[in-house]
Design a binder for these strands. Structure first.
Lengths: 119, 119, 119, 119
DNA sequence: GTGGTCTAGACCACC
DNA sequence: GTGGTCTAGACCACA
């Protein structure tokens, strides 16, 4: 896996996990990779993975059974989706709109780009 | 002037200058505030302003006359606008579209939000 | 390491690094000294080394892995050599020739001095 | 007159005067332009010209009659030439040779460039 | 007055 | 441990 340099690695790992959970590749209550396992797979320092897991645990996305490992929480797939959706609609989109204003880019232009790109 | 904590100060100062140049408050070939002056005005260390000015000089936005000060480069207003425009269209928009895909948000929904918000 | 006072320290550090890379003492993809390490070694403030590293990163000579350190870029040895060669041939030599013209010094004389000196 | 940005202005003014004296446009014992006059001509701060004149006076190239102005010293044309010649041969050329060594550029190559350029 | 460089020391996020 | 940013204050050459 390759990481973008403009974002922290542990957050990109979180995105990787989010996607696995949302797409149900990692179903609810299933044990996920151990810290060392995932660190080895992603060629990353175990501390970094640990940091991701801690964050996800704080968010209630995964839970921990001591001595056994981390598991996907009930409701995680839906929670992730609404969390991301809210963030996108309430935080990211307004920023985009604000920038469009500054650059005098019309919403029509964005529509055009969107449709052209998907061809 | 107040600074957001999630972005570096010297880049926020750059944005401040970008806007002054784009809106022609600071016309081409006009001397801009000296390092110390702007530092005093923004309540910031002169080194921080110096860092901004160096970056802008590398970008060709401003130029320097030794012992006199910094001046707005010819073509700077247009260059800033195209630079920002390109970044928005080629970098930011694709990321937005990608996220829309993941969250299964249609372009129509974005249009709706856009028009609602502007009311 | 001692520094000449007629040139800035951070550029002299860059020259030091250029040489280590060109002579392959520091091979491609090898981690180079950390900012603090080199600062201690050269008896210089870490900020000064940081400045050098930033410049070299802009030039593509070194790259950064977050939280780990700086590494020599692929192709860096060749790039440094061609960069220096170009500067010498296109900038420095013409100035020398121009001065020879003013002082009415023949190229033959330069040849003589060159061969005498090397004895 | 235009100034290169990689060298100080007052030294470039000195070069301008050196040339006028060496080519005998400004003969020995002739009064040269006043500080203000030259400053106006070159579009430069009078302090900068003053600095040049001070340096030239220290070098014995020009002398001052109080209340009247600056004059070209006897022997100035020859002195400038030998001064420049010595500096070129003893300081600049060795540096060039040293750089040629580092970049493994042969004296033959320099000869070739020299002859090609003059065509 | 102007920019430019450097030091000393601090704090932060990240690996 | 790593880089990165910022402050405070100093010194210098130059215009």
């Amino acid at each position: 896996m390759e990481f973008k340099k403009n974002q922290t690695i542990y957050k990109q790992i979180a995105d990787f996990i989010y996607e696995n959970i949302m797409t149900l590749k990692w179903p609810v209550d299933q044990k996920i990779s151990s810290v060392r396992e995932l660190a080895g797979l992603l060629q990353v320092n175990p501390n970094t993975v640990m940091r991701t897991y801690s964050m996800l645990q704080d968010q209630g996305i995964i839970y921990n059974k001591r001595g056994i490992g981390y598991f996907v929480s009930a409701g995680a797939p839906d929670n992730i989706e609404t969390m991301k959706r809210n963030h996108f609609v309430n935080v990211e989109l307004p920023e985009v709109f604000k920038k469009m204003n500054l650059l005098k880019i019309d919403i029509e232009e964005v529509n055009t780009i969107y449709h052209n790109q998907s061809k």
